[in-house]
Amino acid sequence: MNDVLTRVMRSWGYTWAGDLPPDLVCELDVLDRLLRAPPQEAGALAQHFVRPDLMLDLRDGVNEIAARRAIHDRNRNALETTQRLWTEQTNGASPSGLLPALQAMGVPDPDLWHRVILEHDKADSNQREAALWCIEQPACDRASIARYMADLVTSGRLVRAAQCGDIALLDRLRAVIEAVNDGKYPQAEIALSPRDAVAGEDQQFSMALAQLADLTGEARWPAPVGLFTDYPGRAPYPRDNWCLCSGALIAEPRAQDYFPDVPRAP
């Protein structure tokens, strides 16, 4: 955002905001607010300019660049952290399990979490705990959460948790559903295969929630809104250098798995 404002000032012949006359200060302030405003406010702010359409196009372009940069920085951080863990492991550090390894990263890696969620061994309590932890992370992709929630019903795990009185698990699952409905999982990059793998699961999930309410005697949970839909997106980036059983890295991370535009080694 600041780069855009600086370029606008330079186009006016100024290099420092303190030199701007009052009318241009106001115009720059409105532009700044326009670039940062949510969509419902941006349209009204754009009307302060001669060409509102151009200002909205500028806002869209700036936001797209910012989003791409955020994704680039996230993937770079994930790569650098995984490289650090690989170095520590090759120097003798032993992983203490999948969940501690994921937590030790300290930075988001939605593609790794996606693999854990889709491929974890549901008979392994440690891997189940790791998958649950993944869907609780705010940067988890909505496709990953949708797949996890759909599997809860098809596997019968949601109902079994109620039958066994696993209140701790139920509380965590309900918190995730509430977070979905509160818009706390904005990321939707990753595709499911097929893209409609969970589309239409609303009815099955609704039936499971009704059964859950009967078993617990508590008020029925809210259903996740807009979760069971198509997920076209992009293919998940490979994270096959992780062992889901031990949490160990079995190969050094590859830059092309974090930045697909990087040429693969021959």
Score class of each variant (00 low, 15 high):
L20N: 13
G183N: 09
R147K: 11
D182G: 07
F228M: 02
P263Q: 00
V8E: 08
L102S: 00
I71L: 12
A191T: 13
Q163A: 03
P186I: 08
T87M: 07
L98R: 08
G200N: 09
P108Y: 05
L31S: 00
L45A: 09
I65G: 07
V107A: 10
L152S: 02
G18D: 12
L170F: 02
A235T: 08
G13P: 03
N2P: 10
A17S: 15
P224A: 00
D23L: 08
M105G: 06
P266E: 09
N181Y: 07
I135D: 05
Y14I: 04
Y231H: 11
R234Q: 15
L215E: 07
W113D: 09
V30Q: 07
G183C: 07
N63Q: 09
Q256T: 12
D171G: 04
Y258I: 02
C243S: 15
Q211S: 15
D57T: 14
G43H: 03
T90H: 03
P186S: 01
W16Y: 10
D171Y: 05
V30H: 04
I117M: 07
I190T: 14
L249H: 06
A67F: 08
L35S: 02
A17W: 15
A197H: 04
R59S: 14
A66D: 09
P38S: 01
D29V: 02
V153M: 07
A179Y: 07
P236A: 15
I145F: 04
P38I: 01
R59T: 11
V8D: 10
W242F: 13
A44P: 05
S96K: 11
G61N: 14
P21K: 06
T87K: 10
E201Q: 10
R84C: 14
Q187E: 14
L79A: 01
L31P: 01
I190A: 06
P22H: 12
L35Q: 03
